[in-house]
């Protein structure tokens, strides 16, 4: 099976991010970038499918040149080759999905796997928009993927609030991954050595003829309010009084 995995570099979720004084974005100096954790799960799943039934895993990313390190990391995990659509920072979901769709049309994979969302903007849109642009079926929030009838269709377990919903989709299709699908492997030293020799094709975004003009504009960012400490009350009567008069929730 030929699998295309789209990944996005994001600021390391373990580090504290600060908002720029003008509220236009976050401070990226000295912030380490990593593969978005959901995308890492997508890479792992693709590698497991390939290990089971053979095929090819192609990594795809859209963004500035600096993202190369995260692409190489995915190659070091075991992907076969990579494509980077070199584009400016901060594209909106629609623009990214349009670029992905162009490459999918060229590469003709049987399956596209993406993380369900990137932990930077938490938009949760690219997979869905991509499926719509391609007119492909989509299975989002996957926690289990099984292939049937010689890869003609897949059963995908989806995490919903109430439990697991299993749906059937014909291939080719778009799958987005949830947290519990798998535990991603490390980029081992042998993997890193091999990755150095793997192909990384760079496509200038201008060559794809996509209208990437933003449809969404971020107006401002603000930190959540700092939590004030709790207060102790003497009895129920005081609690009710405070809820009524101070918090005004009763």
């Amino acid at each position: 099976m030929k699998i295309l995995v789209a990944i996005k570099p994001v600021p390391n979720p373990d580090e504290k991010v600060k908002i720029r004084p003008d509220g236009s974005g976050i401070v990226l100096d000295n912030i380490k970038m990593v593969i978005n954790p959901f995308c890492e799960i997508a890479v792992e799943e693709a590698l497991r499918i390939k290990e089971k039934q053979g095929g090819e895993v192609v990594i795809l990313t859209v963004g500035p040149k600096e993202g190369e390190q995260q692409v190489r990391t995915a190659l070091a995990m075991g992907a076969d080759r990579a494509i980077q659509v070199e584009a400016e920072k901060g594209l909106d979901s629609l623009a990214v999905a349009k670029f992905l769709a162009k490459v999918v049309e060229q590469e003709k994979p049987d399956l596209v796997i993406l993380g369900k969302q990137a932990v930077d903007d938490d938009n949760n849109q690219v997979g869905q928009i991509l499926a719509a642009l391609l007119s492909w079926p989509q299975a989002t929030f996957a926690s289990k993927i099984e292939f049937l009838d010689g890869n003609k269709k897949a059963h995908v377990g989806r995490e919903t609030d109430g439990g697991i919903e299993t749906i059937e989709v014909p291939l080719p299709c778009v799958v987005t991954t949830d947290l519990r699908l798998n535990e991603p492997r490390y980029a081992s030293l042998p993997g890193i050595m091999k990755a150095k020799k793997k192909e990384l094709k760079v496509i200038p975004s201008a060559s794809l003829g996509v209208d990437a003009a933003p449809k969404v504009k971020v107006l401002s960012l603000a930190s959540p309010k700092e939590r004030a400490g709790g207060r102790k009350v003497a009895d129920v009567a005081e609690l009710v009084a405070k809820l009524k008069n101070e918090a005004k929730v009763l």
Partner: peptide, 15 residues
């Protein structure tokens, strides 16, 4: 070098 950045990341995660 890039491969050392990737390897540092791997070892840090493993640790």
């Amino acid at each position: 070098p890039e491969e050392l950045l990737i390897f540092r990341e791997t070892v840090r995660k493993f640790v």
